[in-house]
Write a protein that binds this DNA or RNA. Structure first.
Lengths: 229, 229
DNA sequence: TAAAAAGTGTGATTTAGATCACATTTTCAT
DNA sequence: ATGAAAATGTGATCTAAATCACACTTTTTA
């Protein structure tokens, strides 16, 4: 059984926007019902199909949200901190509708569902922040869905590289957190197709790869490939 | 310019779950900032790329939510009443990220964004209902995305028929609200591919079509096709 | 009510990417 | 360290669905 540690929400360096608006009493409620844990690469935080009674909050690390489909696993999104995960699961259903797995060492807090709901009911500002969060999420998921389903493989792979560089790491070079299979699950393609696409990008001098380190050498061109599909 | 009519929210027969929890004062606030209008088939309620300052609420009719992709339009979801639309657009961005178009004559209410936000901040129960709504939405969108991107055409078309029958009309026969092109945009396929799939289903005795009326004759088999991809 | 426009059905052809096969490299456990 | 297991790269083949082409039907509007 995983060891959970008590957290100190009041002095937490990684407070969410939502928690920022809580008053003293509310923070105390959170405090006494929140605990944290560390997950290593490839450890599951929660699993599709199992019941779960906590909202999770990513304080550090990197998480993939994935779900089994008719023929393969699919990565719905990649989450970087600070961000809540599993809100829809916990508030909408009793059972997780997807799996969350750490892609690198990650610090996660767990907040009991009923407490989370209590905070929503108590404090409109908290609720408002959560709503903003869910809305932003929905919009970016729409975007991703459309791009993934209409572009062809080179465009999708270019998209993913730019996402990793711009959104996740904020740098033109980064350690690839995804295995070939994961990359495929992320861009709706097979591992082999992704490898071929990356090989072409290397060959064309758009990227270079040393071990797990990726360098985006020509982002302008990658953008163009992403746009043209 | 479209004519907007004052509504009476207190006596409205189509109150949302969220509005049900408002108290007298809050209902008054809503009342004075809510107006309605009727949209005919193919009329747009709001358009992608244009600014919008109201949340829309579908009281009756049927709405498609669609968005331009790199190569074609895509129907993200089909909304039946009672349901809010455009919450993410209005609360997340200033500009609509997608278009909403009536598929049949529809009654829509508009609630000014700042009022909607005010109600969230004022009443945690209202916020809670909105959050439930957004969560439910996200989960079903995940499901749909995975199914659409992993099944092949017959499975996707069977899915869509079952969705229309079970979710939208609650009947084994219904008037098809989608044109061939729309159907394609909904199941991520071309019009021709959909026609071929429907032709096969007709041929195999799974459905029959008279004009715009569809009869699902063998749902068990359609379920099986949907599952097997 | 006629003409134009939009929507639909179906055959023939093309193609992106899945699938298969296997060699090579990396990672992991003993 | 060493062998087993997992992950990766790349060529050859196959296939689902897009694309193209065109006849036919329905809807719109002048």
């Amino acid at each position: 059984m995983r060891q959970l540690e008590k957290t100190n929400c009041e002095t937490c360096r990684f407070k969410s926007c939502a928690v920022e608006v809580l008053d003293g009493d509310e923070l105390m409620i959170l405090q006494t019902n929140c605990s944290g844990s560390v997950f290593q690469r490839n450890e599951a935080i929660f699993c599709e199909g199992t019941p779960h009674a906590s909202v999770s909050y990513v304080k550090s690390g990197l998480i993939k949200i994935h779900k089994n489909g008719p023929s393969k696993d699919q990565i719905l999104k990649i989450i970087k901190p600070p961000q809540y995960i599993g809100i829809p699961t916990v508030l909408g259903n009793k059972v997780n509708q997807y799996t969350a797995t750490a892609l690198e060492t990650s610090h996660i807090c767990f907040i009991a569902t009923d407490i989370f709901r209590k905070l929503i009911l108590l404090n409109g500002k908290f609720a408002n922040e959560i709503i903003n969060n869910l809305c932003q999420d929905e919009l970016s998921f729409f975007d991703r869905t459309i791009n993934q389903s209409q572009k062809q493989i080179h465009g999708r792979v270019a998209d993913a590289l730019l996402f990793l560089s711009n959104e996740l790491y904020g740098s033109d070079s980064f350690q690839m957190p995804l295995s070939g299979n994961d990359f495929g699950d992320f861009v709706h393609a097979r591992r082999e197709s992704v490898a071929r696409s990356l090989a072409k990008f290397k060959n064309d001098g758009l990227i270079s790869v040393k071990g797990k380190t990726y360098f985006l050498l020509n982002k302008v061109m990658l953008e163009r490939i992403s746009k043209s599909g």
